[in-house]
Simulated assay, not measured.
Amino acid sequence: MELQGLVGKLRKGLEEFSKDKVQMLEGGNAFMMVCEGLKEFELVYKEGIDFYMCTSWCGFGFYEADFGWGKPKWVSIPSLGLNNTFILMDTSDDKGIEAWVTLCEEDMALLETNHELREFATLNPTII
């Protein structure tokens, strides 16, 4: 496929996405949109494709939130129940980045025993 054809497909996909998803959001169906998106992820997993999802929540200021009992010492996320997921967050002291990693047991065991990674990372650090 040539560049012109690829650009045309990308443009058409963005238009369809905008039309469908924006209408759902405007109609108050954001929850349904998220559920449909999760179904698409489920299809990818069923087809046996190695799919990894990564997002960064750095810079969102989670440690600045104060609901009346002081700023949090540690912020965590709920389990998504999906393997091959990486979520990056600032540390509480804002001097590093936490990586919330969800893998199957076999892949997690490989990650935890990777000596090169362990030179730069702390597994399950203590909360101060």
Rank of each mutant, 00 (worst) to 15 (best):
M1R: 03
L3D: 07
Q4F: 09
L6R: 11
V7Q: 09
G8I: 04
K9R: 09
K12Q: 15
K12D: 15
G13E: 05
L14A: 13
L14Q: 13
E15S: 10
E15M: 10
F17K: 14
Q23M: 13
N29Y: 03
N29K: 13
M33C: 11
E36M: 10
K39L: 14
K39R: 08
E40M: 05
F41V: 13
Y45T: 08
Y45C: 05
F51P: 05
M53D: 14
S56F: 01
W57I: 08
C58N: 14
F60D: 12
F60V: 14
F60N: 06
G61I: 14
F62D: 15
F62I: 06
F62E: 15
Y63M: 13
Y63T: 06
Y63I: 06
Y63W: 01
A65C: 13
D66V: 04
D66N: 11
G68E: 03
G68P: 05
G70T: 03
P72R: 06
P72E: 01
I77K: 07
P78G: 06
S79D: 15
L82R: 12
L82F: 06
N83I: 02
I87D: 01
I87Y: 00
L88H: 01
D90R: 00
D90P: 03
T91C: 00
T91D: 12
S92G: 08
D93F: 01
D94V: 05
D94R: 07
K95N: 15
K95E: 15
I97C: 06
E98D: 12
E98I: 02
W100I: 14
W100T: 09
T102H: 04
L103K: 02
L103S: 06
E105N: 09
E106Y: 07
E106Q: 12
D107T: 08
D107K: 07
M108S: 04
A109S: 14
A109L: 14
E119G: 02
E119H: 01
L123Y: 00
I127Y: 03
I127M: 10
I128F: 03
